[in-house]
Amino acid sequence: MILAASQAASELTVPLPHGWIGTTSQWIEGFGLGLVVLDLILLVLVWYWLRGRDAMPRMWGWVLVAVGLVPLLVGFMTFAHGLESSATVSACGSCHVMAPFVRDLQDPKSDTLAATHYKNRFILRNQCYECHSDYGLAGTITAKLAGVGHVWHYTTGSYTLPIKISKPFPNSGCLECHGESQRFLNSPSKKEILPDLMSGKMSCLDCHGPAHPEQKKETHL
């Protein structure tokens, strides 16, 4: 009965709001692609125009558009789209060493802390990034720089298995959402330990961990 109900639920799709025209990210991607195609055409045309010296005085405007203006717009669109996309779960899972974490995260049968947050939609999107980046501008910058480090280690193979978090998970990662929740603040089990949680003397994961499944020992690939 429960299985049938969950199967039926998985086949249902949440209706989109009236007048849905896509997300901002989809529009940025579409505009970006259009501009790239336009610019490539312009660049080819300008390249051919350069072959005839007589055309030089007349085509400066097009050169400025093709090499200066349109690529600036392309750069802006690509930066925005890339930045947004790099925070998604699929981006984190694109490195195969992260696959076990993402598999568990998206497993409805898993009861790990990460999977519980994912399947119950406690975090709506970008679940890896939301928990593993500090909030504020500094948090974003630090997370992006760490991401560059991850890409470097992954590409060069300079990492060790099993993958471990680089520093202990800070309570602020949990308290950003839970810290001002009335349900959390008024919970009898939290009242006594709240000061220790806020000060970091006690970790949320002491009771609620581990957030992810234990990793098997593997040889380096």
């Binding site: 970006g32 669109m77 789209h81 930045l83 996309s85 790099s86």
Partner: peptide, 13 residues
Amino acid sequence: ALIVLIRPKPIAF
């Protein structure tokens, strides 16, 4: 830019 827009993987970005 085209690669990032079509397949926005961290390495490409």
